[in-house]
Amino acid sequence: MTRAAFTAALAAALALALAFLVLPVVAIFADTSPGRLVSSLDNPVAADALWLSVRTTLTALAVMVVVGTPAAYLLATRRFPGRALAVTALELPLVLPPAVAGIGLLAAFGPRGILGEALASAGVRLPLTTTAVVLALCFVASPFYVRQAQAAFAALDPSLVEASRTLGASEARTFARVAVPVCLPGLAAGTGLAFGRALGEFGATLMFAGSLQGVSQTLPLAIYASFATDFPAALAMSALLVVVSGALLAALRIGGARWAGPTGAVRLGDDARAARAQTAQPA
């Protein structure tokens, strides 16, 4: 195949992929005027769903970051028996269908689940609550964060950690003052991916947390519920979700670029920058 023909084939594939991926998104907006989008927020179902989605997603993210960051650090920086198994187990939800996640959460935390009796005796009933939504989001989205965080920590130059130790910092202080700030771009990217996954979560939430306005009916569940009764409202809410997710993606891109900018982390291309700095300031 000639080079030109190959380039044409690549371009055709890209055009096909773009058309396929962009068309449904465009279609959502083609049927939704901006006015309709704004007025959909007056609809209590949409407003409650948006607010609930934001609340539960942020709570789930906080839990993921607080627990997932140290866990990822351990996995990335230590070798121990069973580590490979732990990594696989943590990534498993990534490939599980949401329905399986829902069943699994019920089987674990439901009244008939493994922990059901213990939870009941503690007076805790999880299914069909907002807490259940947060648990479902954590379950499906945290692998995205942990994976990314682990990769970021694994790429951390070990001599930075060692330099911190020789400068009198304990392992814990080194983690907080060097590892986390240096890996922040990677951690932010992981947070973004997890946020996206959590915001769009549907199946596991429906199965484990049910669907109730203001309690467990997140934006995707509200879209599904309105789909049959009020299609224009469903469209408006879908558009809302696209806007929120798109804004998030853009913020991540811009934030990531700024962080890795001239004052940011050392990475590829750094030497060129250093060389420029050198010529700019004669010693």
Binding site: P111, P127, L212
Partner: peptide, 21 residues
């Protein structure tokens, strides 16, 4: 006491069978 509005009857039943409701 209604804690979930399910998208179909199987969903209602599933919540009872699983003990969620």
């Amino acid at each position: 006491n209604v804690k979930s509005s399910e998208p179909d009857v199987k969903g209602v039943l599933a919540k009872v069978v699983s003990g969620a409701a």
